[in-house]
């Protein structure tokens, strides 16, 4: 302890001036800012009556892209493998389509998902992408298991995100 005290150098700040000691000018300055902001137009969004349009870079819940009525996904399982939260389960099956393989079952456990977007990044088919949706409500853990019924979205609805991904690649 002694050692540290030896090294310390006392610093004495300059005393406040008379005007500063009065405080009133500082209070007036603050009031001025408050008043100018008070009469400016409001920036608050009245959620849920009003909703923001998210930028394309926004990462909402992951969804599966469907083209011509079928999902693009080939059930390669890479998203399931990369997912740090182990939220995804894919069961592949065989299809007559040219892609040979399709997800018989595709499930994302939305309680596990951390919206990291790794699945989107790893997908070789641009089949799983992050959407604009962020409002997720469940009343049980079972409900949080999103199957293909909740995941598959037609490509028309998600074009902007796909364009964004292409641009930012």
């Amino acid at each position: 302890m002694e050692k540290y005290l030896e090294k310390s150098v006392p610093v004495r700040k300059k005393d406040l001036s008379f005007w500063q000691k009065l405080y009133i000018p500082a209070i007036l300055q603050g009031m001025k800012i408050t008043m100018t902001e008070f009469f400016k137009p409001s920036v608050t969004i009245e959620y849920p009556e009003v909703r923001t349009v998210m930028p394309d870079s926004f990462r909402g819940r992951p969804i599966l892209v469907a083209e011509n009525g079928t999902e693009r996904c080939v059930a390669c399982g890479l998203c399931a493998r990369v997912c740090p939260a182990l939220a995804i389960e894919v069961q592949a099956g065989e299809t007559e389509l040219g892609k040979e393989r399709y997800p018989e079952r595709f499930e994302i456990n939305m309680v596990r998902c951390i919206f990291c977007g790794f699945c989107e990044e790893v997908c070789p088919e641009e089949a799983i992408i992050m959407s604009q949706e962020y409002e997720l409500v469940f009343t049980s853990q079972k409900e949080a298991l999103f199957g293909k019924d909740k995941l598959v979205k037609p490509i028309e609805e998600v074009r902007t995100r796909l364009d964004f991904l292409r641009k930012s690649r």
Binding site: L86, E89, E107, N109, V111, R112, Q141, K142, L145
Partner: peptide, 13 residues
Amino acid sequence: SRLDKFAAPNDSW
């Protein structure tokens, strides 16, 4: 497997 290691009661896998 990796899935066996990390499966929780509420997981389907």
